[in-house]
Design a protein around this nucleic acid. Sequence first.
DNA 1: GGATTATTGTTCGGATCCAAACGATTGGAA
DNA 2: TTCCAATCGTTTGGATCCGAACAATAATCC
Lengths: 165, 165
Amino acid sequence: MPDQHSLAEVERATRERVQHLPLDFTASHALLSLYRAANAVRGRLTNSVLRPNDLTWTGFLVLWTLWIWDSMETREVAESVGISKGTLTGVSKTLLSRGLLERIPSTVDRRLVNLKLSPEGVRLMEQIYPEFNKTESTVVGDLDKVQLTSMTDALRTLVETSERY
Amino acid sequence: MPDQHSLAEVERATRERVQHLPLDFTASHALLSLYRAANAVRGRLTNSVLRPNDLTWTGFLVLWTLWIWDSMETREVAESVGISKGTLTGVSKTLLSRGLLERIPSTVDRRLVNLKLSPEGVRLMEQIYPEFNKTESTVVGDLDKVQLTSMTDALRTLVETSERY
DNA sequence: GGATTATTGTTCGGATCCAAACGATTGGAA
DNA sequence: TTCCAATCGTTTGGATCCGAACAATAATCC
């Protein structure tokens, strides 16, 4: 692993730097850990599973979402994956060109376009996801059941609080 | 808030879709929550604090890192922020053009370049960070002290496990 | 000491990413 | 029916973002 400053070191340095300000260090450290953890997990999954299959993180999330929900309007896919509509247009173009996706224009409302996994897309997900999930399992392997459940609950609360507005 | 499927809905659909496979759903749900939370928090902080000040998330992290550690080699900054060296070159160009950063070539090793906040960069951080931290505090406000500490610990474990290799 | 190896920051190509502007379409109000 | 506001997916411009290739420099080997 790189010589990245450990989280503990960063926190100590932070306190020294802004000691005189009335800050919420607990919040700051929690969210720094959150950001680092998300980044680390994403990198790990990307390198070990996605890149060998020539998939990007976002591309995989789009495929996974369509795999779970079968068919969706592009607007819903973007929301579900957490990217903008414009970004989805680009990503789905990439996946479309690889034959992993199908576009199905709505007959009811001609503004709408539905996305759907192609048979090849389904095959790819059936092949990749077990491997992806195995790595996920490894990544959380150092947490016991109580810690993991508690963390998941806390993260859900964070999502709700952050998105409230 | 958008009509994004709730985490609970996604989890239910996931189980139905891949029920027949021997998967670790607990791990999957935990990491889905992790990804969503990081995204939501990042978006919230970006929209409420960073964008009004014309800063990107990564740009802010670079400034913040240099604020905490005073002066660093570019390699260290990239590692600390969690981006590649090539990305840092681009981001620091942007910050440099705004006069928030200074480049200090090393006299000892002419391959090295140190980065440092300019006086204006320091002023900007002193102005922005209290506001940034206030929003951080709000975001974690629905978690009690025990939950927050426990979550932070779990996230740290996740970072270590993910980066181990 | 000369050749090889390693490391640094930059450049490059290609994919993401966003907000804003846009044309097309829809649905409601006058 | 005829505007008119709302919503869809796309396009645009600009900033990230990465891995790989690169030139310059430093360290190591023999």
